[in-house]
Amino acid sequence: MEVQITINGTTHTSEVEPRTLLVHHIRDDLGLTGTNVGCDTSSCGACTIHIDGQSAKSCTLLAVQANGADLTTIEGMASGDGLHPMQQAFMENHGLQCGYCTPGMVMAATSFLNENADPSEAEVREGLEGNLCRCTGYHNIVKSVLDCASKGA
């Protein structure tokens, strides 16, 4: 069926099979490969994007469910001026290593700060409970998010 989805400000009209997972539509059909797939069970959060401003796991949604929605992926975060403050915080605090979980982490973290602008360390950890990372031990990810929050960005 035909879906019309706005991603990072651009509206795409496409024909998809109803069973097409949103993450595959974004990656395979629209070529936005920054959003990753890390698991089959909605556990890892590598596929996290924003739907109408809120974090969501795009591997657990059908593309048809996003028909008419406004999506942001990692490709929509940096602007012409440079990295998004959360991306910048991850860079400055060595919040990534292999980078595979990173787009999902950044999207989850920005959504989290939208809902809790001044979190404690424990709240950041709970807020990222749905995003797994195997490289960093989370220490520097948590530090990155707290750093970003402290700068009020």
Partner: peptide, 21 residues
């Protein structure tokens, strides 16, 4: 020194195997 690798990986520019079609 901050990592050179990061800007690509932070923005989705980094290409992993499944990204190459």
């Amino acid at each position: 020194l901050l990592r050179k690798e990061d800007p690509k990986l932070l923005t989705g520019e980094g290409k992993y195997i499944d990204d190459i079609q």
